[in-house]
Design a protein around this nucleic acid. Structure first.
Lengths: 253, 253
DNA sequence: TCATACACACTACCATGGTAGTATGTCAAT
DNA sequence: ATTGACATACTACCATGGTAGTGTGTATGA
């Protein structure tokens, strides 16, 4: 006991008894949690991912009880994850009625874009011309990897590299909390972004914009870096308009 | 039963029995909650207020158990409130050790200012020249009330009107979620702002800046509105520097 | 005097039971 | 066919008990 290598899992009263009789539904999108780590954040992360990748669709119900059973945990950490998701606008909690995956709201996507643009334009304007050589080198590597991902059509990888690209801009500018804010705001657009990835030529466009932004940052053209970032981030507005007519089932309000 | 006018309070098993034996400490800053409304948000609001008005000081402990007893509720809604406060950076939760009022962190205040400036400058630039007549009228009333509050030295009232002024800019610009983001980011600066209010001439300065911003918005001078907003929001940077030397006990990290 | 083992008093965290509130289906009355 | 009452089956919400983990003081050893 006490050592981190102990094989003992977390127990709590009679709950240690696994309900092996309960049918495990392999069709579910949620994998069981890791009992060695804090549970609530894990559940949040799984649900966030399931929603932003549209594995869970708008208006789908998320019952504390059901999720707890599926994940093999109690209702408390599930509830905490749901509250956070509701705070961030990914689910709607109707008191005494239920929790449901929130629809994509056009106005929310547009305002999220506004917020992100305001923030990230300021970030690159501040960063332009002040990037360390290590940052420049790492950025070039990231962009090369993006190009590779595009060439190979690896959309999941591109999404990751994209995320890393934008995050590194914030961090190098000395603004880590700004990335945190952007991350939360971005949740309102992630489903749209996810659906736009398969569109022909889209990855190429994003990559070219990334390169252009990075060049402007590198040579210290603050104004241009900001303008290019703004243009880049506005891509989602075109996408969401197309989606609003192509997939009205995902939208609401 | 069932009618909203029923005198029945919320019961839950044996917990209905008030622990009248427990000593009520009137020196506490937290008032008991209203049992007819959702409890968790009430606790969050009380704690948020206690922290931002420095009724609870940095590094002060916030135990789930103690707070639950003081407020006459169970630990669950207290815990939910603490989690949210931790998310927003007002408290630090150290797993298995305790929760404590977070110190004012100079870097966090500065980054919060950066974020708020980026956002709110964009807001007024978008709004400039597009305010409805009702908005203009309401704004003038608000500013007159601010002047009255300043004249009477009513700092609490001024703080409220200040808040309303900035919020109304976001709402009139059609950006309600932006205000929500600003509100959360602003938490990192609220203690600084609160301490700066008694400084001689400070309220007058803020009021004059508000008037100047509003004028620029009214006549549609977007650039100028943004510049004036930026200058206004940068006041907190001077304040936090002064406070950092005058009240080092409130700062940390 | 100083280091170390250890009991103890906390903590946050999770499991679980109970309650009021909401929606829905069923059935009687109109 | 419609409406209304009512039982039923959910829900989120809160109360509470138990567990592992962490810090601290206190003996016990050198």
């Amino acid at each position: 006991m006490g050592t981190k290598l102990s094989g003992a899992t977390r127990f709590s009263g009679s709950a240690a008894r696994l309900k092996t009789a309960g049918q495990r539904d392999p069709s579910r999108v949620l994998e069981p949690v890791n009992n060695r780590m804090p549970i609530s954040p894990q559940i949040y992360e799984r649900l966030r991912r399931a929603i932003t990748t549209l594995a869970m669709l708008p208006s789908e119900a998320l019952s504390e009880q059901d999720l707890a059973q599926q994940l093999g945990v109690s209702r408390t950490p599930v509830r905490e994850a749901l509250i956070r998701l509701a705070d961030e606008g990914l689910i709607d909690i109707l008191p005494q009625r239920g929790s449901f995956v929130a629809p994509i709201r056009l106005s929310d996507v547009e305002e999220a874009q506004f917020i992100r643009e305001a923030l990230e334009v300021s970030v690159v304007q501040k960063l332009a011309g002040h990037g360390s050589s290590a940052f420049i080198a790492a950025g070039r590597v990231n962009l090369a990897q993006q190009a590779k991902a595009v060439a190979e059509g690896d959309r999941e990888l591109f999404l990751e590299l994209d995320e890393g690209f934008h995050r590194s801009l914030c961090e190098e500018a000395g603004l880590p909390k700004s990335w945190r804010v952007i991350q939360v705001v971005k949740l309102q657009m992630d489903r749209v972004r996810y659906l736009s990835l398969p569109e022909p030529g889209h990855l190429e466009t994003l990559l070219a914009q990334h390169v252009a932004i990075f060049e402007a940052v590198e040579i210290g053209e603050a104004k241009q870096a900001g303008a290019r970032m703004a243009a880049h981030l506005r891509e989602v507005l075109r996408t969401v308009q197309r989606l609003n007519v192509a997939r009205p089932d995902l939208f609401g309000q």
